[in-house]
Design a protein around this nucleic acid. Structure first.
Lengths: 240, 240
DNA sequence: ATAATAGTGTCTATGAGACAGTATAGC
DNA sequence: GCTATACTGTCTCATAGACACTATTAT
């Protein structure tokens, strides 16, 4: 066919030109809340460059897998769970971000509740652990590549999205109490919230279960779950 | 040095493995408002695949340029201006999005006021023109590759960002009247707004000039400009 | 009863939304 | 004067924010 010939011709011309291609990776920001702190999964590199530095888990994108597939492959390498919130964040393309060669990296953010998170040491890695995000930043911990920038970017995204999406619910289990959920908001926003006001705002997002907390030396708390509603519309916009 | 040896060793191992790399492009969504309509710059392809289809302008990312540089290079190829709002949107990585080969594309959104926009026909292209976004969608115009998906994604982004950023100001000239600005909001949000309420909301974002419109058969309108303030904080979030 | 946390009622201030009114240019 | 658009004042209603109050478990 004419079309096929044309395409073949194109491919030949293209290959002859031998454009040098960058490499492409995905890097993962896997967040969870543990011990009332926002934590992130980091690995300790055991290869050059940045050997022995902390870094985000990541993989090279294979020629026959989508970016999401590469992201999930990374997740599976480091942690047990796979039913997990995943969102593309940003693509980092500075020329010198990797000293070896030109690597463009697409960062993905994942969120898991800590009960679903089980760390598994990957092959080319000497350690996988959770790190307190605040402590990393306060200690000015030096991470490999531009990974600290990626973390800071992700934190901003979380802080913004918490206000107009249901992203906070990804940090709690399927069934949760409102005090638990409020704690998540308080940790992510880094400020105390009024109980009554908090409950007013989120009450249309949740539905009661008939379960209660037990064996605690004070009044028990009702379990709730996320109510399935259509994705929230453009809120906070001019109405007319 | 030991470190250098190690790095060289790594590079050799890496190159021997000969991972097949995807190609990387940037595609540009250049928006403007003309004749009271949101319009986008599209080219007509004169090469396979999708010959004669409308497509977004884009380029392959060179090994020695950042993604932003590639985006600006695209902009310069198609339009005159270069002082222009630019924002990374999303990276598209489906395996079959290009029939020739694996291409990962980072989409960038640019916004220009129509007075700054001068289209220039690029080399490998048979036409560059502005197209009404609404008409493209209503006519279910078939664009090359996944470019229609990119457009729809960008429109959503604009509609969201207009509420909590100053993005709308990118569509007007440096100095503008409030009726002009309101029109931009109305076009982007696709609904009529009350004048008084609109002005209340944006009044802290703008500052008066001493210029007025002239020679119009009705009351003249004052010109304003964007007030330089620090980037707006997390608005619409729980305060306590 | 006490300690400790869960959960509710209500006042106030702010601001969005709706609409009516006034102002000022050219003709 | 008229027309056409620019600009402003103000009422209402919803809701965010602040705080005080009541409820219920284990010990």
């Amino acid at each position: 066919m004419n079309k096929n010939n044309n395409e073949l011709e194109f491919l030949n011309t293209y290959n002859k030109k031998q454009y040098e291609k960058p490499s492409v990776t995905v890097d993962l920001l896997i967040f969870t809340i543990e011990d009332d702190e926002l934590k992130i999964v980091l690995i300790r590199r055991n290869e050059m460059p940045y050997k022995d530095f902390l870094a985000l888990p990541g993989v090279f994108v294979r020629i026959d897998e989508t970016l999401e597939e590469a992201a999930y492959r990374t997740i599976k390498e480091e942690i047990g769970s796979c039913d997990i919130y995943l969102e593309q964040l940003f693509t980092w393309g500075d020329v010198d971000r990797d000293p070896r060669m030109r690597i463009i990296s697409i960062s993905y953010m994942a969120i898991v509740s800590s009960d679903k998170l089980k760390l598994v040491k990957g092959e080319r890695v000497s350690e996988v652990k959770l790190y307190s995000v605040n402590r990393l930043i306060d200690n000015k911990e030096e991470l490999a590549f531009d990974h600290m920038k990626m973390i800071k970017y992700a934190i901003e995204r979380i802080k913004n999205k918490i206000a107009y999406t249901k992203i906070a619910f990804e940090f709690v289990e399927e069934e949760f109490t409102l005090p638990q959920l409020q704690k998540v908001y308080e940790i992510l926003l880094n400020k105390a919230l009024y109980k009554a006001n908090f409950r007013n705002k989120i009450k249309e997002l949740v539905e009661e279960t008939d379960k209660m907390t037990e064996k605690q030396p004070h009044r028990p708390s009702k379990y709730y779950r996320l109510r399935e509603t259509e994705y929230e519309q453009n809120k906070g916009i001019f109405k007319r």
